[in-house]
Design a protein around this nucleic acid. Structure first.
Lengths: 123, 123
DNA sequence: CTGGATCCCCAGGGATACTG
DNA sequence: CAGTATCCCTGGGGATCCAG
């Protein structure tokens, strides 16, 4: 065996970090979510995601597509029509995120309290 | 009811984002992990986390402590001795992260392939 | 040993304008 | 409609030095 579980932990850390790098970025999740329920068009996304700019929407879409989390379908009509759909892999990712969501819901108050306590003690 | 499940999705998005903000940052997970197995000292962390600077270690520790994920214990000896331990909340977070880790392990190859394909097509 | 204080740099992201 | 191109600015994080 290796010394303690450090090696295993290191592996796990790296793996998690890779996921986080993938879905971090201010808009990734917000973009991915609407695409879960089926094809979504560019402008639909732009309207449904409050505060996103055209630029960031495009960049985020490109990255997600590159990682195989989104498929892009172009209909060569005029005016152009493009649809984005989440892949199976993305749906599995979303399921995996649920556990994080539930953790957050359970601990949101505790975190807020911890912060107040810390800030009060620090100030 | 609201239009479709947009409201629910929005809520979920926000919640997840709060967690991600908390554990994003280049070092958070790497710092949290060694503290899972019991008290760890500052220098131990510094040595076990490859590439971290003193500054970032300190900042990361402070943030984690502020959010109630880490407890800091100071022994007023000379030279000083400080121990960090993950809280129960942090351990639950770690469990929640496991699903992400397993997702990553399952899909790492698929992502790599998707990227190559995309880059080849783009180039 | 365990930090704090400073300076600096770069990538992520906002605003705006243009286009097939 | 669905993007591209450009400019700019902020803050996360690295390097270095100082201190109780």
């Amino acid at each position: 065996m290796s010394q303690r579980n450090t090696d295993v932990s290191h592996q796990a850390t790296c793996t998690v970090l890779q996921v986080l790098e993938r879905i971090s970025g201010k808009w990734s999740i917000g973009v991915l979510l609407p695409a879960m329920d089926g094809p979504v068009r560019f402008t639909e996304l732009e309207r449904s995601i409050a505060g996103i700019s055209r630029r960031m929407l495009t960049l985020t879409l490109r990255n997600l597509e590159r990682d195989g989390l989104l498929t892009r379908t172009v209909y060569p009509t005029v005016p152009p029509k493009v649809e984005y759909t989440a892949t199976e892999m993305a749906r599995e990712l979303y399921d995996a995120l649920q556990s994080l969501t539930s953790w957050a819901e359970r601990n949101l108050d505790a975190i807020a309290t911890a912060r107040e306590t810390y800030d009060a003690a620090t100030a």
